[in-house]
């Protein structure tokens, strides 16, 4: 853990990983979106609107998966006080929030032509909206904090408390009667045809790599800003 927490070592790895994740992620995403839009079959029930799945499902995966990584980074920041963990958490939050918002809006645009409504207050849709509010709460708390204030701890604690929402999102469609259908992809197999799985997995992989690229770039930006602040402070002290 401590080996990776060294910022200099992290930067060496990040400088290699950033272009890799960015370009491979872009290639997979462009291929996935193209096949999803033009080169995959319509669904036997819902016709063309099934194409919204290829952006909705990866966005949902990164919204909830991003929150899990935000919570893990916050736990490491709280317990071990690693500055890199705090930076990672603050880099993850805006990307996770954006993907959650994309998931909610694309889901709404998918719901109207299939279910007949943009929105219902069922357990799945409501718990996903709660996830967006958890992200926004974290962003607000971490933006209001000083260098090492109580607010920073408050933001990390909020991130940890919110983890309870993740199993609720996942199992909402099984625990309660919901308008949202059950999971299509389980460990035991998939209820999605192979021709539809191809663009779905391309987008899942592509979006995930792009998410990693965004987090890496944000972390590098924050580390550079910290170096600038430290250097100008030293400069001011030397001149005084």
């Amino acid at each position: 853990m401590h080996r990776f927490a060294n910022p200099a070592r992290f930067l060496r790895i990040a400088r290699v990983a950033t272009p890799l994740t960015l370009w491979i992620g872009l290639a997979l995403t462009v291929a996935g979106l193209y096949i999803g839009l033009f080169a995959s079959p319509p669904d036997y029930q819902q016709g063309e609107s099934v194409r919204i799945m290829y952006v909705h499902v990866p966005a949902a995966w990164l919204g909830s998966g991003g929150y899990l990584s935000l919570a893990i980074a916050s736990a490491v920041a709280l317990i071990w006080r690693h500055p890199l963990a705090t930076i990672a958490a603050r880099a993850i939050a805006p990307a996770g929030a954006a993907f959650t918002a994309i998931c909610l809006v694309s889901g709404s645009l998918w719901g109207k032509p299939t279910w007949g409504t943009y929105w219902v207050w069922d357990a799945r849709l409501t718990s996903m909206l709660v996830l967006l509010f958890l992200y926004l709460g974290y962003l607000a708390l971490s933006a209001s904090e000083g260098e090492r204030g109580e607010e920073r701890r408050a933001a990390s604690i909020l991130a940890l408390v919110g983890v309870i929402n993740l199993p609720i999102i996942k199992y909402s469609v099984e625990w309660w009667n919901t308008l949202h259908q059950g999971p299509s992809i389980k460990l035991t197999g998939s209820a999605i045809d192979g021709h539809m799985l191809l663009p779905l997995f391309l987008c899942l992989g592509g979006f995930t790599l792009l998410f990693a690229a965004i987090v890496l770039m944000r972390m590098r930006a924050m580390l550079a800003e910290q170096r600038v602040e430290a250097r100008s402070r030293r400069l001011a002290e030397a001149l005084a």
């Binding site: 079959p41 669904d43 036997y44 299939t114 007949g116 059950g182 209820a191 045809d193």
Partner: peptide, 17 residues
């Protein structure tokens, strides 16, 4: 109000046929 609920299966019409 009537809402349609669909299942978790997705496939092309040829396969369904």
């Amino acid at each position: 109000t009537i809402l349609a609920k669909h299942d978790e299966k997705y496939m092309p019409p040829e396969v369904a046929g």
